[in-house]
């Protein structure tokens, strides 16, 4: 029993990590007023680039870096369409997802099923990892896990406690007012989309070089969509995204626990998605004004228009 509990917690943390990374990125992006539905695609690109670079160079961190760069680069497409061209962000985001999934499948073809021999060592935090039960489960994890939490906290601090953060949030709430205060709205939105894309790619890198240590087409398995739902669930707050992501990570793990009890694995595989739906429904029934959604989310902004 003891072992089951520890391994459940441990696996929950692992499953929640990519969700947290992608959600933090999407929160940053949406706070600037741009809806990015391309998370799933950027994640896939991040996963395949990280895998290929790690395998050929033997340097996992180089793989991570390359993945983040690729994710940022491909996100420029969405930034260009939604900021410069004021296109419909839903359409452009969906296009990015399809492009990313297709592209990753294509360039990853020769690597399907090949195992990755290079390992990323777990980081064991001294003393804390000696705490009974949770010590080994929480404080002996891959570097991605700590990185995700630190980045989420930094993002929260950035949004709430820095001048640039106020500018980003104001851009999402009222771009026209923000512009009259001398902020370059387009620039803020470009960088928010690009950095958000970097976060998504980081989540993908975790999947391919740390979580499963292999590449297969479609391995992101809808996690990008869950991150978009989590963004709403976390009420656009990176701090809240931390526990929300691990709750969802837990739902991923629960399916393996329930399987031996004779519940159909197909049904269990549905759980994360059902949970997403339920949460979206619950949130929608609440007062939308209390939701805290950026007021101008997904609304294109054009300078100098009346």
């Amino acid at each position: 029993m003891e072992e089951i509990i520890i391994s459940t917690i441990q696996r929950t943390m692992v499953a929640g990590t990519p969700l947290l990374l992608a959600t933090t990125g999407e929160v940053l992006c949406e706070r600037s007023g741009i809806l990015n539905l391309g998370v799933e695609g950027v994640m896939a690109v991040g996963a395949v680039v990280a895998f290929i670079v790690t395998m050929t160079t033997g340097q996992p961190w180089l793989g991570v870096l390359a993945a983040v760069g690729a994710g940022m680069a491909i996100s420029v497409i969405h930034a260009f369409a939604s900021v410069s061209l004021q296109a419909n962000q839903v359409v452009s985001g969906l296009a990015l997802t399809m492009l990313g999934l297709g592209l990753s499948g294509m360039i990853g073809k020769p690597y399907v099923g090949r195992p990755l021999s290079i390992k990323m060592e777990n980081v064991e935090i001294p003393f804390l990892s000696d705490i009974p039960y949770i010590g080994q489960a929480v404080f002996n994890q891959s570097p991605f896990f700590y990185l995700a939490i630190v980045l989420a906290l930094v993002s929260w601090f950035f949004l709430e406690r820095t001048r640039l953060g106020i500018q980003v949030r104001s851009t999402g709430e009222n771009p026209k007012a923000t512009e009259t205060q001398g902020v370059n709205v387009d620039l803020v939105r470009y960088w928010s989309v690009i950095i958000g894309g970097g976060f998504s790619a980081l989540a993908g890198a975790h999947l391919s070089i740390s979580y499963s240590k292999s590449w297969v087409e479609g391995m992101t398995a809808g996690r990008g969509w869950i991150a978009i739902a989590l963004t709403i669930f976390a009420l656009w707050n990176p701090g809240r995204a931390i526990w929300a992501s691990f709750v969802f990570g837990g739902i991923f793990v629960v399916q393996y626990l329930l399987q031996p009890l004779g519940i159909s694995p197909n049904f269990l595989a549905m759980l994360p998605y059902i949970a997403t739906l339920v949460i979206l429904l619950v949130i929608s029934f609440r007062d939308p004004r209390k939701l805290n959604a950026p007021a101008m989310l997904a609304a294109p902004y054009k300078r100098g228009e009346r």
């Binding site: 949030r169 007012a177 923000t178 205060q181 001398g182």
Partner: peptide, 19 residues
Amino acid sequence: HQHFMLVQNHSIIENIALG
């Protein structure tokens, strides 16, 4: 401006800090 250029969901101090 005639239509105030303020961020409605932000506090007074945040609005002032912005500009």
